[in-house]
């Protein structure tokens, strides 16, 4: 009996493992394709290295940028000499700061606007107004207001994150079946119980979509803001590298940005989705 159960579970595990592998391989194919083209370009010299640098040069740039860095300690303490890691940390720090402030605020205001007609009449028009302007269009104004530096980049990110989060949470609350709220009220629940037990979890599918969108658009806005109105960060690194015609550093910057975002999505947003809406059966799953 026990052995039968073990055999069954290992076969299931093997099947799940195979599915995961399949998913990974399918997802990796376009990347492999890009890398092959890249290598072929270097081999056949379709485009000169000033436009597309050899792969080796891009990885070499890591060493060049971190040349004077005094080891791991220097990187962690953000010593002046460690320019690549400093730029990574400063971009990531801004993203985390903007997320910590912008996401909860957007969710809170979105829920208020979703549950209250007056609040929604009050907040929705200004939200539409704010959303009509691309986040980066605020950069010139932000530079005038806050100067070149971290305040400008933070403002640009917050502006992008907050409104996206606000709209998604609001629509999420509006889409919840009335009967859930009624069931909590008839059990003697207060308005606060309804918010905690119905609106917040019920709006979760929209909230997670909102997080995905706002983190994606937030990253893009941040990089743009750092290029024009920043004094550090990956956007700043790319921009200065291109001015100095260090094309391999531009490539490196772009690759690092994508890797960080993909990691955020995979190790933070996807598990959050799995733990909430997938577990609750609120998400459409391909079979």
């Amino acid at each position: 009996m026990t052995t039968a159960v073990t055999a069954l579970s290992t076969s299931i595990q093997r099947r799940i493992g195979r599915q995961k592998l399949r998913k990974f391989i399918l997802g990796a194919i376009p990347f492999v394709f890009l890398l092959v083209i890249w290598q072929m370009n270097t081999a056949f010299e379709w485009l000169p290295p000033v436009f597309i640098p050899p792969m080796g040069d891009v990885f070499g740039a890591i060493i060049t940028l971190q040349e004077d860095c005094i080891g791991l300690i220097g990187a962690i303490t953000m010593h002046n000499s460690c320019s690549m890691t400093n730029n990574i940390f400063s971009s990531m720090g801004r993203v985390i700061l903007a997320a910590v402030i912008g996401l909860p605020l957007g969710i809170a205001f979105g829920i208020i606007a979703g549950m209250n007609r007056t609040a929604s009449k009050f907040l929705e028009p200004i939200g539409v107004f704010a959303n009509s302007i691309s986040g980066i269009a605020w950069i010139p104004l932000a530079i005038v207001w806050f100067g070149v530096g971290w305040l400008t980049t933070l403002f640009i990110m917050l502006n992008t994150i907050f409104w996206l989060m606000f709209f998604n949470s609001m629509l999420g609350v509006r889409g919840i079946a009335k009967v859930y709220e009624q069931s909590v009220l008839t059990m003697g629940g207060s308005r606060m119980d309804v918010i905690r037990h119905v609106y917040l979890p019920g709006a979760m599918p929209s909230i997670i979509t909102g997080m995905r969108m706002s983190m994606g658009f937030g990253w893009r806005a941040l990089i743009a803001a750092e290029m024009v109105g920043g004094d550090s960060g990956l956007g700043f690194m790319i921009f200065t590298a291109s001015e100095e015609f260090k094309i391999e550093e531009v490539f490196l910057g772009v690759i690092i940005i994508s890797i960080i975002f993909m990691a955020t999505d995979r190790y933070f947003l996807a598990p959050l989705e799995k733990w909430t809406i997938e577990r609750w059966g609120l998400v459409w799953k391909p079979t």
């Binding site: 009967v179 009624q182 069931s183 008839t186 609750w280 059966g281």
Partner: peptide, 15 residues
């Protein structure tokens, strides 16, 4: 809470 309701639709919370 003195009156409990069983609704027509499935009103138990999915989460």
């Amino acid at each position: 809470p003195d009156r409990g309701v069983v609704f027509q639709e499935h009103a138990i919370l999915p989460w």
